Amino acid sequence: MIKVTLVAGARPNFMKIAPMIHAIQAKIKEGSALSFRLVHTGQHYDKKMSGDFFEQLNIPEPDANLGGGGGTQAEQTAAIMVAFEKELLAHRPDLVIVVGDVTSTLACSITAKKLVVDVAHVEGGIRSGDLSMPEEINRMVTDSITDHFFTTSEIANNNLRKLGFPESSIHFVGNTMIDTLMANMPRFKKPEGELFEQLQPQSYFVMTMHRPANVDQEEKLKEMIDAIMKGTKGLPVIFPVHPRTAKNLQNLGINDPNLHMTDPLSYLEFNYLVKNAKGVITDSGGITEEASVMNVPCITLRDNTERPETIELGTNELVGTDPKKLPPYLEKLMNNQWKKYQGIPMWDGKTAERIVDKILEIYR
């Protein structure tokens, strides 16, 4: 029996893990000697992470919640490591699978290796080159002790080769986030409420902003919002907003009738809006992947990206954090002159199957 522990710490991690659960369940049905435990580290406490959330993704509720949320990054890392060590001692697996680049990814990979348990990193090898981002530290440390890398792109493979990892540890499988996107596309649903009823396809924008570089400097944030509202020429801009960002915006007195700040939306609702939008303006990495595959123009308000394939083959453009650079991009988008999605290799909705097949091959 191959025992696998799947680790998730934040909401996007569950999107990456859901297809792996489905692929494992399918193999178990076929008679494979495989079992799994789903561990939620509790890194992000999110009131939307209720039974409904797991129901939406069609996955079981976690077998364990480590309650590792709150505090500084160091406190969080320590709390997750202490709790995950107890979990592994009580339920020792053959393989721990970590995903993405959150604090839990780092904490659980270190804990597993110290107990001499193999670690696989889904999305291994991606790099932004920006050491001011906590996520970059998490990626570098996790990859340095990982046994098997399940990679999303040839760029990630080359990053790992340059670091000297053997070819036998690098498995190019694609992107599980896109598995989830493709599986759920028929189920996307319009959010409820008068605002959403009035939206016409391809005649509004979706915006997300959460990175401190964008939201914590008040004057710069005001300048950026002004540039966005000017460049979108009166089209509605839907901004599902973090409470902290909402507070910053209120303090700045930003009150444009076309800027609609909403509560955070569910996965199915948010992606419904993205799929039907004229364009997306974001500082999130994952959204650039989803927008690209849905062929929706995407503007990234960051100076670097760990997902360059979304620029080379996707619909994403890296504009930077200077509001003055934004107008020509918005003008191009408004004039329908944006590039089209060219297809990213292996982003085909079958990544999780390839991961589980590889695990069976390695650990049989």
Rank of each mutant, 00 (worst) to 15 (best):
I170L: 10
I170F: 02
I170K: 03
F172T: 01
F172R: 09
V173Q: 02
V173R: 04
G174H: 01
N175P: 12
N175I: 08
N175S: 06
N175C: 08
N175M: 07
M177P: 05
M177S: 13
I178M: 04
I178D: 03
I178S: 08
I178H: 04
T180S: 10
L181P: 01
A183Q: 14
A183Y: 13
N184V: 02
N184R: 11
M185L: 15
F188Y: 10
F188V: 06
K189N: 12
K189A: 13
K189F: 12
K189E: 13
K189S: 13
K190R: 15
P191A: 07
E192A: 15
G193L: 09
G193A: 09
E194D: 14
L195G: 10
F196V: 05
E197V: 12
Q198H: 14
L199Q: 12
Q200F: 08
Q200T: 13
Q202M: 12
Q202H: 14
Q202L: 11
S203V: 06
S203W: 10
S203P: 07
Y204P: 05
M207V: 02
M207P: 00
M207K: 01
T208L: 09
H210M: 11
H210R: 08
H210P: 12
R211W: 03
R211G: 13
R211M: 08
R211D: 08
P212A: 14
P212N: 11
A213Q: 15
N214S: 10
V215W: 02
V215S: 07
Q217Y: 15
E219N: 15
E219G: 15
E219P: 11
K220S: 14
L221Y: 02
K222M: 12
K222I: 09
E223L: 15
E223D: 15
I225V: 13
I225T: 04
D226Q: 13
D226Y: 08
A227Q: 10
A227V: 00
I228N: 04
I228R: 07
M229H: 05
M229A: 04
M229R: 00
M229S: 01
G231K: 02
G231A: 01
G231F: 04
T232H: 01
T232P: 00
K233L: 09
G234P: 00
L235K: 14
L235V: 08
L235T: 09
V237N: 08
V237F: 06
I238N: 02
I238T: 04
I238M: 00
F239R: 00
F239G: 05
F239W: 00
F239T: 01
F239A: 00
V241Q: 01
H242F: 03
H242W: 02
P243Y: 05
T245V: 14
T245N: 03
A246L: 09
N248Q: 15
N248F: 14
L249I: 13
L252Q: 12
I254K: 06
I254Q: 11
I254P: 05
N255F: 13
N255C: 11
P257I: 03
P257H: 03
N258P: 10
N258D: 13
N258F: 10
L259S: 09
H260R: 06
H260E: 01
H260V: 08
H260M: 01
H260Y: 11
M261E: 09
M261Y: 05
T262L: 05
D263L: 07
P264W: 07
P264L: 08
S266F: 05
E269Q: 10
F270L: 09
F270S: 02
N271Y: 10
N271L: 11
Y272Q: 05
Y272C: 01
L273C: 00
L273V: 08
L273K: 03
